[in-house]
Nucleic acid binder design. Sequence first.
DNA 1: CGAATCGTTGACGTAAGTCAACTTCAGTGG
DNA 2: CCACTGAAGTTGACTTACGTCAACGATTCG
Lengths: 241, 241
Amino acid sequence: MVSPRAPSAEIIIHCFDSRVDLSAEERHYLQRMVKSPKVHSAGSEIIASGTPLDNPLFLLSGWAFAAVNLSDGRRQIIDFHLPGDILGLSTRANSKSYECWIALTTLVTANARAFLSFLQPEADVHYPGLARIARIVECEREMRHVRHIVRLGSQLAPARMASLILDLARRIERCGLMNEGAFELPITQEFLGNALGMSTVHVNRTLQQLRHGGLIRLKNGTLEVLNRTGLERAAEDEVSA
Amino acid sequence: MVSPRAPSAEIIIHCFDSRVDLSAEERHYLQRMVKSPKVHSAGSEIIASGTPLDNPLFLLSGWAFAAVNLSDGRRQIIDFHLPGDILGLSTRANSKSYECWIALTTLVTANARAFLSFLQPEADVHYPGLARIARIVECEREMRHVRHIVRLGSQLAPARMASLILDLARRIERCGLMNEGAFELPITQEFLGNALGMSTVHVNRTLQQLRHGGLIRLKNGTLEVLNRTGLERAAEDEVSA
DNA sequence: CGAATCGTTGACGTAAGTCAACTTCAGTGG
DNA sequence: CCACTGAAGTTGACTTACGTCAACGATTCG
């Protein structure tokens, strides 16, 4: 376990700020919430499946993913999570979780339990901006789910890959971790396969294809988008191209 | 256009009742809401993609589906909708819809706009049961999405098909349209393919397989589950709730 | 230095797509 | 009544995208 850096709500505030107007009071409230961060090691299960979703977490740094474990040991990754996201936030706090959340890298979380109440019908809303963010977080997750369904159901391997990369790139940009078109992508080819419904070998070949097409560079866990419009074209309808 | 039967909130109340306790007042409120039903013909677009989701609809009778249209004319079906469902309900009422909703059969809808406000953080909740239902509807949709991701990403054709059939059967049961293990399934093989990410030909072969395995009977749009546990085994489905 | 872990490549097998023909079957109209 | 039509379902022959297996580099790390 790495000792956490000084706890900071900066990333959270930054990510929320781009979506709603936060009052000074709300910023302060967030600062207070992020007082006792927790460090998780890479690969550890942060929220197990089958547990009640009564303890959502801010993701302050590092990457995670939500997944469903199948009875035969395989796993389907449903969604990736970046700094600024909230893990395990659901209206259905008391019902058991179907998914689990797992750390992809060493990561730091903080309790976000207050966000749960914002989702309840009887919520007494002292913080309208935060309540709105809670709803927006759920909405964006749904949009990602729908896009993922489209990827898995209607696209060939190169389009799936390109589409996922673009999704991640856009989110990385928003939370300020993009560095001149490049960003850290701590997802092994095995996990990319678990997300995109393809074998590790085929992930490798598909990435080669994107590389040779001059669309991306990917080396040592750093991904650089070399040709954005090309990548977008590849993501949209690979089949017709 | 079939002339609508006497407008009735019965199906709505029945479906909601199985999930929350409704007050007499809330039942009455639902009755009033369902006063001016509208009939849509099979195949018509009920909510277009790109429009704001500011007008959710009760589905009183018939089937519909939510889909994403791809640039090359193909379409990915995201979710099916049965009587008792709400179409186009989203927290993001003002943002443009990515999906569209289309009638699978002739169907009858009624305005459910009041449910929109139940999802807003500032909602002034006079009807806690209905507000709760609005959340539950969103939650259940998310669970269906996640299961669909698992299907498309991790399962072979027979398991996909079995899993979808089971999902539909469970929902049909809940809204009281199951008839001794059999129900109307007004989904052509083409649409099943659009949902399950497979070609019409392969849908046909997969259904044959399930038939010959003695798991289902499907004739003239009526599906009968002959061997429930066998179907569940085929679906590799441990989620029975 | 082994020992992991991850990435890469080739040979080969298989699930599923494509194309095309042929059935049903429900309308519809002469 | 039958002949015609169009939509849905069914089947066979062939192609292809992707999986599987297995071997082999590259990196990192105790």
